[in-house]
Amino acid sequence: MAYSDKVLDHYENPRNVGSLDKNDPQVGTGMVGAPACGDVMKLQIKVNEQGIIEDAKFKTYGCGSAIASSSLVTEWLKGKSLDQAAEIKNSAIAEELALPPVKIHCSVLAEDAIKAAVADLQSKQTGKKEAA
């Protein structure tokens, strides 16, 4: 399978690999996919007091395109509000990385991971407000 230069770059030099404290109220965690399907993405975002994403980390089990998709979105997420983050579409990821049709599901998974991380953070924050 021929990969685009951008996929290769993210694969060789993945950005923002790692984990944030999932119990931190400022951190949202999204884990999507399944080992049986050959890819699992864990995406974490950390927001500041203004609700802007100041850090994003990922770990991905999957093919080169899955790793590149998640690496790319961690770059895109930084500096965005949660609403802006939720607007990131898989088609933009696929276009940026020039993913072939058989790898589109990797970009879909990355979009799902963002949504899951945002939802996790929002539920934490709602819970916090309710508690307060």
Binding site: V17, S19, G33, A34, P35, A36, V40, K59, T60, Y61
Partner: peptide
């Protein structure tokens, strides 16, 4: 493995079979 969330879970002692995966 440094990149793999499954490896991280394995190292944390989580049984992957006990996890509810969202199949896609």
């Amino acid at each position: 493995r440094e990149l793999s969330p499954l490896w991280e879970m394995y190292q944390d002692g989580i049984d992957l079979n006990s996890v509810q995966w969202a199949a896609h």
